[in-house]
Write a protein that binds this DNA or RNA. Sequence first.
DNA 1: TGTACATCAGTGAACGCGCGTTCACTGATGTAC
DNA 2: TGTACATCAGTGAACGCGCGTTCACTGATGTAC
Lengths: 205, 205
Amino acid sequence: MTDGFKRRTPSRWGEGGVLREEILAAAARLLAESGREGDLSLRAVAREVGISAPSIYLHFEDRAELVSTLTRRAYERLVGDLRAARERGAVDGPRAGLRAMTRRYCALALDNPRLYRLMFGIERIEVPREELASHPLWWVAEAWHDAVAACRPGAAEEPGDRRVAKLLWFSLHGVVAMALSTPFQVDRQALEEMADDLLDLALTR
Amino acid sequence: MTDGFKRRTPSRWGEGGVLREEILAAAARLLAESGREGDLSLRAVAREVGISAPSIYLHFEDRAELVSTLTRRAYERLVGDLRAARERGAVDGPRAGLRAMTRRYCALALDNPRLYRLMFGIERIEVPREELASHPLWWVAEAWHDAVAACRPGAAEEPGDRRVAKLLWFSLHGVVAMALSTPFQVDRQALEEMADDLLDLALTR
DNA sequence: TGTACATCAGTGAACGCGCGTTCACTGATGTAC
DNA sequence: TGTACATCAGTGAACGCGCGTTCACTGATGTAC
């Protein structure tokens, strides 16, 4: 072939798994740059990687598996980032830790709007019932709960913590989502102010 | 034709506009039953109405115009509903009016999840800049602002009202959106409790 | 009253597109004897 | 050391699909003279 297509040179023996990562990276790139999940096509991914479309089937069952792998990783990274941010902030106390976590949450969403959408978009209205119990969203919920619970003196589990954590996370999501998707001008600073307000409100009851 | 297709009998002279409404109704039905905006196809709409696909072009410029008409109407109905609910509740005072409005907001979202998604889904990340100023979302914002401002004694405009209204609406959106799209079991009652909490928090500062 | 014509409200067939997926294949690299 | 074969990492062509949109048309209803 003499035309301008970049074509990837095949992996060597035993390094087939490398392509799998390249595919995921390319898919993430496409998604982050210009896509909704529904618009992400195998052929586009293949083009981005520089391989033929059928090659994807060597590494993924089908389109659905590619997307779900992508999503799962996004959640994993998010939870890791949130926990790390909280830990860093917590040197000034648990409340500072929670605050650092909300800030990081806002920043991640603003910097990766489409990834955020992939994880929390309402488009995902109908989730198969069987997947509910093991859904990665529970990890996120757990991270919020831990951070909220740490702000209370006394180590005992309290049922109110779950409510507060949910309320804080959900309303924070609302603020972030609206900032991302509506014509209302909400800059980074305004967003952080709103997040701080929510934090105060949630903890001062 | 002898097969089972329902075929609509053509409108009579001067009643061409009727089909336009039928198309919109069918599109709304499809959207409400099983769709995301992106999945709504002209051909499916035509099938639902019982006409040929090209007939839609007699009433809409293209797919985009159909969808935007649909969306605009959804906003109009929403704002009308919210204002009406507030008015009914306001016989017990402005705060009861605001409370009635938040309840109506929750109810509308829960009962029409896909319509809610059409209006407030994050998928709509990039809106053309020219449309921003006249976007129907401003009507919704205005409705919230009016309801919040009425809860304060004194008729003078206060800049804080806008902040509070935004915070209330946005966080309410977050709660609703998460209830609609995540595996967390949030029933109607839990949702209303969270909404009440937000209302209290927003007004008690 | 008749009739030619205009207008309205549509239709059927076709276009080109990108898609997910399947199929039989190819060429390089390793392994058994 | 040679050679037959297995395995790996892919490819090219084709399938059938539904889509948005365009085009030239049709048949019923109205209007001018």
